[in-house]
Design a binder for these strands. Structure first.
Lengths: 212, 212, 212, 212
DNA sequence: GATGAATGAGCATTCATTCAT
DNA sequence: CATGAATGAATGCTCATTCAT
């Protein structure tokens, strides 16, 4: 099973946003190299010593920038999560109608996952851990912030008679379920084609699934 | 976040199949009580001491029946996986056409998850761990065995012009992606209604997503 | 480093003496296969499970014949020790004078070690363990029994003016030290030629070392 | 059986060479107290808890300085081995002829063993373990370095007609066998007189054993 | 006599975290 | 700000021994 590798520079750009400038260099170095550590062995199993060796930073520096190992994971998670949110927001912002919103959401999602596969894998890996830990409330807040505008746009679609009257709690699963499922399988090495290759088909199927 | 609790007797029946009779009693006790341990803290973080205390068995007995902690997780995983496979096979066996196959698959899935939520949560939790560990090949074999008949039925549907000509690697995501996504959210306490409540809608949406 | 291998049948004969007949078969099987286990990993590190697997006997049988693991080691040690004593006694019995006693002792020693290298290695390996354990007194008694007649013969040699007047506690080291040293090195794979190849030279050197 | 006790300060000096200065204090403390632990029960049977308690260091510190228990044993072994080598090299360096080399070697050996009996006992105890473990090659290298100059001096003696033409692989056993044998017996409490008491006799006997 | 499942004390080792320099 | 030696609680696992069958 060959797992996809993303571009280092793209990742660097994401982390630059999270810890900008000269000052943030050592912090970025830790996050950058923590990613493969966490992905390879899991958050629990990765050790501070792993992070120290790969990042070239000292133990003290890691603890200076992050409270503890969980703090490293959370910082990395939110750096990825926020970049993903930004990508989704940008794409969906100017979609003219509900179907275009769905298409934009799916497209933004698969493009982001295809561009940053390691970070995407980490988001799947860390999500439950983060949700149950001390940053769970923060995650819930940011999820709400990400999806509220989209939910509003889809609600419009329902009122306009374009989207079927479905239980609200079912919509997210119907819209992104297939896309997420394919992305997970690709990230795990169980699918060949990049998610972007199927963006159109995934968006169409999602739309047909909820269309009136 | 209230997480769903399943019936103990239903779980007992599943484990009885895996380790039958008087002889298997201590083995079953370990598996039965390992489930909440693993679900609460994760496989890595759960300790043998946790398993020992909850199951009332000795450390030696755990290691006698299972090679190591990973062995306990694998045994539990395959007990659940196989029961899920059996449920799917039973339901889909006598479906008259492709659409009925999709409906039966979705129904079997949501019913199984709703009946055994803790075991279902564990299957999601353990899947990647199992896939990457020494039982990965075994899992791949059993996945193939589970889905081969269903793939064949859907291929019929494509030939009959009922299902669109889609890339084969996309189909599983389109058929079960939404269902899995909803089940994950429900198991995590982020959705109220049991998956069974939406079985029909999930099946319809899935079918519209792949229909010609 | 290739370590020398002895003949199985020769070993079988030694153990047959220790546990004779049909009745002693399972006991012999344990001792026979315990030898390579102990030699390979050391007495402490060898496990009952090792002995069980190689010997084909059950755990219960091992504990039935020997009180515990130490008991297996002790039984094997004394089986070897006693056979070695017998070989030495036979050879030295009819030596006409002190020099012949020394030659016979060295010859008996190197021949026994060359014929039963694994057992010889075990005697070196186990000696200190046995000497310090509950069988220490027994070992001291049997050592006394082995060397008393030889010491008497050498004392004659001193009185006859053939052997120098040396401190009694020095004699054993001078007589067998070189031989033992070579045998240890050969058993450890650090020497090529069988000890028997140097029997004459070792005996001559030993004699010159103590001769008046 | 009273076992000989050496002077603590002499041992301290040896270990000071191995881990010098203020920085090496905790490392030295571990080695110093590991010696009686290993000698009393054997390397395998001695526990890290023993070492921790006697040395007053923490478990973490032991593992920080040495990779594992085997690493403690190896460090102690080589500290002793190297000091012994140095003592031998010093003594034999300015011996005028082959007989003087033999006498110097025996003298250096018995003096070192008499001065550091616990360390000497440990060298006998650990030798096979070290030889078979990951430091076996290192030991072979250092043995070669220790004995190469002495072998060269003895080879001169053979050419000069002072030493008999004996198989090369026999010489070490003839020269040091008796000495080693006596030292082992003394260290085990089976002999009273310090090896130094017999240095002259041991050297004479060794020389007569190999003289032309 | 023979068996092997069950036991649980005991062990080597790891690793997140601290804090003096 | 940076460092990395020191800490020791916690963990997975082993294995000699027992005993009911």
């Amino acid at each position: 099973m060959k797992r996809p590798r993303g571009s280092t520079s793209r990742l660097a750009a994401v982390l630059e946003l999270a810890s900008p400038g000269e000052r943030g260099a050592s912090r970025r170095a830790v996050l950058m190299h923590a990613l493969p550590c966490f992905n390879a062995r899991g958050i629990e199993a990765a050790t501070i010593e792993d992070l120290r060796q790969r990042s070239g930073q000292s133990v003290g520096t890691i603890y200076h920038h992050f409270r503890n190992k969980e703090g490293v994971a959370a910082a990395l998670f939110f750096a990825g999560f926020d970049d993903q949110s930004r990508a989704i927001a940008e794409r969906t912002a100017d979609a003219p109608d509900a179907q275009a919103v769905v298409a934009a959401l799916v497209a933004a999602y698969v493009e982001w996952v295809s561009a940053l596969p390691e970070l995407a894998a980490f988001l799947f890996l860390a999500r439950e851990t983060i949700a149950q830990g001390p940053y769970g409330a923060e995650l819930a807040r940011r999820l709400e912030a990400r999806y509220a505008p989209i939910d509003a746009r889809l609600a419009e679609g329902v009122r306009a008679g374009l989207i079927a009257e479905l239980p609200a709690e079912l919509i997210p699963a119907l819209v992104l379920g297939g896309t997420e499922s394919y992305c997970r399988a690709w990230l795990a090495g169980r699918r060949r084609a990049r998610p972007t290759a199927h963006a159109g088909l995934l968006a169409e199927a999602a739309w047909r699934g909820i269309a009136a």
